[in-house]
Nucleic acid binder design. Sequence first.
DNA 1: GCGAGGACGTA
DNA 2: CGTACGTCCTCGCT
Length: 904
Amino acid sequence: MPENAPQPGSRLLLLDGHSLAYRAFFALPVENFSTTTGQHTNAVFGFVSMLINVLRDEQPTHVGVAFDVSRQTFRAEEYAEYKANRSASPSEFSGQLSLIEEVLDALRIPFLKKEGFEADDIIATLVTQALREDSGIDEVLILTGDRDSLQLVSERSTVLYPMRGVSDLARMTPEAVQEKYGVPPQRYPELAALVGETSDNLPGVPGVGQGYAAKWINQFDGLDNVITHADQIGGKKGESLREHLGDVLRNRRLNALVTDLQLELGPADLLKQPWDRQRVHTLFDSLEFQVLRTRLFDSLESQEEVEEGGFELDGALLGEGEVAAWLAEVGEAVVGVHVRGEWGAGTGRVEGLAMATADGRAAYLDTTGLGGEDDAALAAWLADPARPKVLHDAKGPALALAAHGWSLAGVTSDTALAAYLVRPDQRSYDLADLTLRYLKRELRQEAVGEEPGEQGELFAGEGAEAGHAVAATAMLHARAVLDLAEALAEAVEETGGQELLTQVELPLIGVLRGMEEVGIAVDADHLGALEAHFATEVGAAAEAAYAVIGKEINLGSPKQLQVVLFDELGMPKTKRTKTGYTTDADALTALLAKTGHPFLEHLLRHRDVIRLRQTIEGLLKTVAPDGRIHTTFNQMIAATGRLSSTDPNLQNIPIRTEEGRRIREGFVVGSGFESLMTADYSQIEMRIMAHLSEDALLIEAFRSGSDFHSITAARVFDVPAAEVTLEMRAKIKAMNYGLAYGLSAFGLGQQLGIEPAEARGLMEEYFETFGGIRDYLDGIVDVARRSGYTETIRGRRRYLPDLVSDNRQRREMAQRMALNAPIQGSAADLIKIAMLRVDEQLRTQGLTSRLLLQVHDELVLEVAPGEREALEELVRTEMAGAADLTVPLDVSVGTGASWHEAAH
DNA sequence: GCGAGGACGTA
DNA sequence: CGTACGTCCTCGCT
């Protein structure tokens, strides 16, 4: 048997190189796909992207690509107008075809051409050969953007047809063709002959669409019979058919594919070969295809199978007096730790603890009712920074351990945090998911087993007879964490996140744990009174609103509001939402300005006060018995690297309105302390932008130390600083803030209530003044598109695959994310470092004051008696020194008995 | 009871 | 048609 003879189970994938590249060329905007040297790559990118996806999803054993040679085909000879409507392929396109061939060479995928014929004919010939009994090919897939190929669909051959752009493929089976066109695949060209094909410049029968064509073909059993019985078809359409029989016959001749070409290669010669990795790297380097390179090599790795079953663990259930000995044997080896228990709201409870080492040993310890000596031994091991441990999402376990009086040190990795740094935009970092992805090992409950009997093999060593499923599962988890830590260390290293992990995120676990534990004191009486006050206001606003419209509706239901506003009161329609018209505050305010209708006034008032009431209600529900609120800070949610706060969210307590700020009066200094202190960075994101962009004027503006928005406004409007009006300042301030979000002229105009044209002019003026900013912003997106990710100053990455999407909305969204991520992310890194420095100094200086909250650019602390001055000095120093930027970091500090009073 | 959609609070 | 979050409500579904 020849070496490349097809084996049973073979799948042949054939691609129409020309039609796919042509589609990609028009689907992907060329300005987003060209190299630094100016070579256009949109067609190459689209083709290679589709190729990688289909190789990954379909796992073919054989692959080949067919190309057209030139426009001189037998079809053009018969009918000069064939495809004559196509503008001569722009040189930007034809130049890319040879690049595609180079890629195929590097991937060792053969491609075929035949003088005088089209790619379709080559594919038709190969399909015919492949479907012969002795070919050894079981199944054929045809990826093409040319509908003529639909005639090749059969039980064993499927056409994959790009739906929109280059990302969605329709799977055209015989059933799908029948469903979509109303005729079976072999009759598709008959239908096409009647309907015509505009893209090939083949006119069909005027007035006859797909529906009539299918009807006739089915009614008369085929095109031949339709033509024979053309005189039996009445009406205008019948007449039209008779007049254009010649066109139909010509179309049918031209769209028939040739299936018996003499080709240099047959299906068996298309057996998939290993890539020429070196050439792939060189070529993708020159094409600047970083993203595709990753996808290509990832798709190769994903082909590795998930390992079956588990592995042996020498598990031990530790009983009284055995702890210390087991830990001693472990020595300074890295231990995977899995804590069983519960935690949240700044506290927790430990039930048991599983440990595993790389040599296969594992142990489980029930910590409920643990004896004095065992407790001490475990406590000593947990607290010893020289005994390395790895955990998964250690903050919760650390809270539980702390509640038991155990402190945790020596955490050399946290697998959840490591995974977050590698890919920060996932919604969860579930241990089982990560184990499957990085270790190719199944950790699901069903795979691990619930029954003790199923776990017998895990207890090969002593304690086997006493094995419990709970303990076994816990040990398996501990071992998975240990192995994951190793696998992730490599991934973290590759993505350059090592320093962030060990210097920032890991040490931050302890700081956050402390903040959650401490919580922040609230004045429940004040909040209670405030809630009652707002509740009254809610009632009054509701009554007033009902009185105006003469009935009671649910003011919280956008649906009911729409009926009242747009149907009953006949107000002008607002901006559309998915389900109707918006009733958001902006729109209602605009309506109020237009109509002056009192209902809107009461409605807006109702919205305001009901929200304030709800906010207070939510807060009061979370007050712990110690009279404090213990939020949970999540370290792995925001793709940019920010923290988030939940249960309750203390990062969105109102501040903008007078009434809202009264809620902040309810956050107060706790007993035994002197006051609250807030310390925040001014214009942190703009300062980071100044640093990153190296714009000389912007840097100078910050260094001058005067009002930043005014001084930039003076520059943009080219007036002396003293002549900057409030209006000028407001405009530039909006822009200063908007820039980091990818603000458009439209959006700016909207916000400032000016014409888009004026907004555009303003932006141009701004960029004229601060050229460095424009260059920097353009550069970010450009670099991110090539590399596939953005990076903060400290190297935190965010991957944005949609930067090369063929969907404009997704692509532009990704571009805005790319603009924002390095700026918001750098600020996030910076304040995290500031928190670590503050925390460190608090201990070094022996202060009792403590960190309570972080609100992105602000820290809230509780000041111990007599420490105010020292603390302010400390906080200013450590926050300002958290990064070395080309512009100074300005920190403003305030103190007071409440969060409100501490504001400044 | 769950999820989507809408609305809105913060940086 | 401006980024990043979390929470509340309603409404239609199961």
